[in-house]
């Protein structure tokens, strides 16, 4: 028997995940596209519908509302996370004690089961006995109808995202800053820059690549947001927090429209591909270099 060459063995090893990938991503993707042209409800049979589903999608006001909501959610949450997160990293850099306590606490939201976090926040946002309103009342802010009114519900979901992911921005930024040489800070300091100026003008630009990567990850993940929001608001009240993934899921599992669900999925997958391609120009190279 001919011995299999080492080269083909390693090729094979590397290809296993690829085969998996093709089997479990490409095929489903093809099938999403396929069914997106069918009118097909759970329990029924697929009936070819041409671009009917797409026409329905692009004339659905809820679809545009969802797109807008998802975008606003992403921009608001990521923006807040970067401001707050980098601010916290600034504090962490400038204190001498208690860093390990701080980082331990910051880990918590990151590992907390998101579905469960959604439920806990749902209780905390309760208009009657929720702690959020109670603490707000202590500083003189009247109680809000958090999960009951649309705008408030939207803000609630952003707050939860900020709670869950700001630590990520902080810890990555902090880790990046600690790898910088001390001479960099000393030099800027001798050159006459204030601590804040040094941080903003000298140190942050140095970890630019890292910041791109986390910006990229945060934008992608907020656009895909599902679990925390779904368990906290279920996409409501009404459709106030029905973001893209939730919109997709609801059409499929609540309204039983497989064909239409696939149309939304197809659109969403293509959209995300575009976003990833555009954003990964800078972040991708940085990731490979890391």
């Amino acid at each position: 028997m001919k011995k299999i060459s080492f080269r083909s063995k390693t090729l094979f090893l590397a290809l296993i995940p690829m085969i998996y990938l093709y089997g479990l991503v490409i095929y489903p993707f093809a099938s999403v596209i396929y069914y997106s042209f069918f009118s097909y409800d759970i329990g029924g049979t697929p009936v070819f519908n041409g671009v009917g589903n797409y026409i329905q999608l692009f004339t659905d006001p809820q679809f545009y509302r969802t797109l807008g909501l998802t975008l606003s959610y992403s921009i608001l949450a990521v923006g807040a996370e970067f401001l707050f997160g980098i601010g916290l990293a600034y504090l962490l850099v400038h204190i001498s004690r208690g860093r390990s306590v701080a980082t331990s606490i910051l880990i918590l939201p990151l590992v907390m089961t998101p579905a469960v976090a959604g439920i806990i926040w749902r209780i905390m946002f309760d208009a009657g006995f929720g702690h959020v309103n109670f603490y707000l009342s202590l500083i003189g802010i009247p109680g809000q109808k958090w999960l009951i009114r649309p705008t408030e519900a939207f803000i609630s979901t952003v707050i939860v995202d900020v709670w869950q992911w700001t630590p990520f921005v902080t810890l990555v930024t902090f880790a990046g800053l600690t790898t910088l040489p001390v001479e960099l800070v000393e030099s800027a300091y001798i050159d006459g820059a204030s601590e804040f100026r040094t941080f903003k003008d000298i140190l942050l630009p140095r970890i630019r690549a890292l910041l791109y990567i986390i910006l990229f990850l945060r934008v992608i993940d907020t656009l895909k947001i599902f679990d925390t929001v779904y368990t906290m608001t279920g996409g409501g009240p009404g459709t106030a927090t029905t973001y893209m993934s939730i919109f997709n899921y609801l059409n499929l599992m609540t309204f039983y429209h497989i064909g239409y669900g696939c149309t939304i999925a197809a659109f969403f997958i293509v959209l995300m591909n575009v976003v990833v391609t555009v954003l990964s120009k800078k972040a991708g190279a940085a990731l490979f270099a890391a």
Binding site: P181, P205, R206
Partner: peptide
């Protein structure tokens, strides 16, 4: 410094 300090 010996370590060449350059700002970005």
């Amino acid at each position: 410094f010996q370590f060449i300090v350059i700002y970005d």
